[in-house]
């Protein structure tokens, strides 16, 4: 062993110690400030955490691109959906007059809203792109009730951290963090391109999260559950979910 290699060895050791301890400090800080996604364990955890933390730190309030009316896709693409169940068909037969959106969990005033109730909130219209993880996309105008308006009316409790939202299809749900629930473009959409939201696109009610990939925009939404933990509902960790294996955070 020469002198230089010993010095190199000590330097490398010090650098490694500094690296490991600063990583530990960073991990603690990240946890405290809500920068760790629910699927942060396992071999893909570091990549997911870096992406989620970077976007929450640097772009928490940024708005998804909105497009001019001329860019609305003439033929929006309706992705395939699982066969609709009897509960859905019954409601469809009644023109969705009895469709209810229930809000429960960590709220001061749980509620059950009809589509007419939803329309009485302030309305938001936005022309945004639906981006599928497969690679395709289309632009449409989405009209609906901002999620934060509904949550505000229900009085979200201070320790809430996630909202889990469920489709009428019992095998379909997703969850988002409070940054996305409070985002102005997160929309309970009941209309598309100036008509009622077609069933093929998630009608009568779809939660649109335009800063994330299409699979976070669940169709046929019937329930919002406000929670301090998405445990049991993170599709990436739950083999029962149709999205088994997909990342929880889909802003990439």
């Amino acid at each position: 062993m020469s002198k230089i290699s010993r010095r190199k060895f000590v330097t490398a050791g010090l650098a490694a110690t500094a690296g490991v301890s600063s990583l530990a400090v960073a991990a603690n800080l990240a946890k405290r400030y809500g920068l760790v996604p629910p699927d942060s364990s396992g071999i893909y955890g570091p990549g997911e955490t870096l992406t989620y933390a970077a976007q929450r730190l640097l772009a928490r309030h940024s708005l998804a691109r909105e497009f001019p009316r001329s860019m609305i896709s003439k033929v929006p693409f309706a992705n395939s959906i699982a066969p609709l169940n009897d509960a859905f068909k019954r409601l469809q037969a009644g023109a969705f007059a009895d469709w209810r959106l229930s809000i429960d969990g960590l709220v001061a005033r749980p509620a059950s809203l009809s589509l007419a109730d939803l329309r009485s909130f302030p309305v938001r219209r936005q022309i945004t792109e639906v981006v599928c993880e497969e690679g395709w996309s289309y632009v449409a105008e989405w009209i609906g009730t901002p999620l934060f308006e509904v949550l505000k009316a229900c009085g979200v409790l201070p320790h809430a951290r996630y909202v889990v939202y469920f489709s009428i299809d019992p095998d379909w749900w997703e969850s988002i963090d409070m940054a996305d629930t409070q985002h102005p473009q997160t929309l309970l959409a009941w209309s598309m391109n100036d008509g009622d939201l077609p069933v093929a696109f998630g009608g009568p009610l779809r939660l649109r999260v335009p800063r994330q990939l299409g699979y976070k925009s669940v169709k046929f939404v019937t329930r919002l559950m406000v929670s301090d933990s998405p445990k049991g509902f993170v599709s990436a960790l739950d083999p029962k979910s149709p999205n088994f294996g997909y990342a929880w955070y889909a802003g990439i």
């Binding site: 976007q55 640097l58 772009a59 940024s62 708005l63 998804a64 691109r65 792109e129 981006v131 690679g135 996309s137 335009p210 800063r211 994330q212 990939l213 889909a250 802003g251 990439i252």
Partner: peptide
């Protein structure tokens, strides 16, 4: 430029390429 979250923060990254499908 294909990331919806990144494009929200830095729209010119995708617009300058001619759009999301051009970026892909």
């Amino acid at each position: 430029a294909m990331s919806p979250g990144f494009n929200a923060a830095v729209p010119w990254a995708v617009n300058s390429l001619g759009g999301r499908q051009s970026a892909r």
